[in-house]
Design a protein around this nucleic acid. Structure first.
Lengths: 106, 106
DNA sequence: AACTTGCGAAACCGAATGGTTGCACATACA
DNA sequence: TGTATGTGCAACCATTCGGTTTCGCAAGTT
């Protein structure tokens, strides 16, 4: 199933899961222990994160380790970058104003 | 009302609105013309965007001009940045592997 | 003063969301 | 083989979401 990454990171619990498994791969049970919710609920979140390829899984015996697909977050970074130049130019414009004022003081 | 910026940018129409008013301030009617939806629907989106301070409004007569509060997007940038170092170190690790292979070839 | 225009708010509706509970199944262990 | 453990999935439920329609109001226009 195709899924939107922005919709995936909209939920605060999912963002917490992402931050958690960014450091090390974890099983659903281990993840659920960190939240005030059931394992099945975490499992649903992991399914959504997997569907948009934000998370990859690796089976080990009867356990499944989930870890973050860091590269995927670049998609969010790319979206942000179109506005980054805006706040940079705004900064530059402020710079211009300041240097103009400085000129006038001379 | 307090609102989560990640929940605000989850909707594709809202992201389109953000991109639209990033360049110039626009009225709800003008914005709605760019989408296949009603003005009232756009108005609801603008309300959500305003609630999380992603958008500011300026009244001019009976028209209200909406424009982007670019600075607010830095919050998303900050969230991304915690993972940016991860994909940078991953790149460095790949670098290490490559240089090790090069060493062995000598 | 009557009419038009631009807008937000409220009421309503179908669809999606996030959570829980119960179940089925595979893997490990006695 | 029987039992415990780790997991995904389906069914169900209350809530939220995104959209439309209707309305009221303020600002212009005639």
């Amino acid at each position: 199933m195709r899924r939107d990454i922005f919709q995936a990171i909209a939920d605060p619990t999912r963002r917490a899961i992402i931050a958690l498994i960014a450091l090390q791969a974890m099983t659903p049970n281990a993840i659920a222990e960190n939240f005030n919710t059931t394992r099945q609920s975490v499992s649903k979140h992991l399914r959504i994160l997997t569907e948009c390829e934000l998370v990859k899984q690796e089976q080990q015996g009867r356990e499944i380790y989930y870890s973050l697909e860091v590269e995927k977050i670049k998609e969010v970074d790319q979206w942000v970058s179109q506005f980054r130049k805006l706040w940079e130019t705004r900064f530059n414009q402020l710079d211009d104003v300041l240097s103009t004022l400085k000129q006038q003081q001379k």
